[in-house]
């Protein structure tokens, strides 16, 4: 299969595979232990597990962009670490 028209690279392919894996993992999680019903967290609005994943991913994108804006010389792995902590907090408390 020729994918050159989409200009694939290893890092971008890894990125999308990880996102896909997250969706699969969320599905398996929900099937094994149902509990995705909405709850109200510290932000005072209802979220399901899917909403929390969305908020985590959207937040992660902004954390990386802010990192680039504020610390253009430093490695992005720091932003990735912050995004992971942020995602944990979202799943725990939002």
């Amino acid at each position: 299969m020729n994918l050159s028209w989409m200009a694939w690279t290893k890092p971008t392919a890894t990125f999308f595979i990880l996102i896909f894996c997250m969706l699969v993992a969320m599905t398996i999680w929900e099937m094994k232990s149902p509990g995705g019903a909405p709850r109200v967290g510290i932000l005072r609005f209802e979220t399901t597990r899917g909403d929390r994943l969305f908020v985590s991913l959207l937040g992660a994108a902004y954390i990386h962009i802010l990192w680039l804006a504020l610390f253009p010389g430093l490695a992005l792995w720091w932003a990735f670490a912050i995004a992971c902590v942020y995602a944990f907090c979202v799943f725990k408390w939002v």
Binding site: S4, W5, M6, A7, T9, P11, T12, F15, F16
Partner: peptide
Amino acid sequence: LMTVVNYSFQDTFGSNQFFWVGM
């Protein structure tokens, strides 16, 4: 959208040739 993401990390001068430029 995936194609756009792929393009955003690369440079091209046409002819379907791309060069990785990172962020």
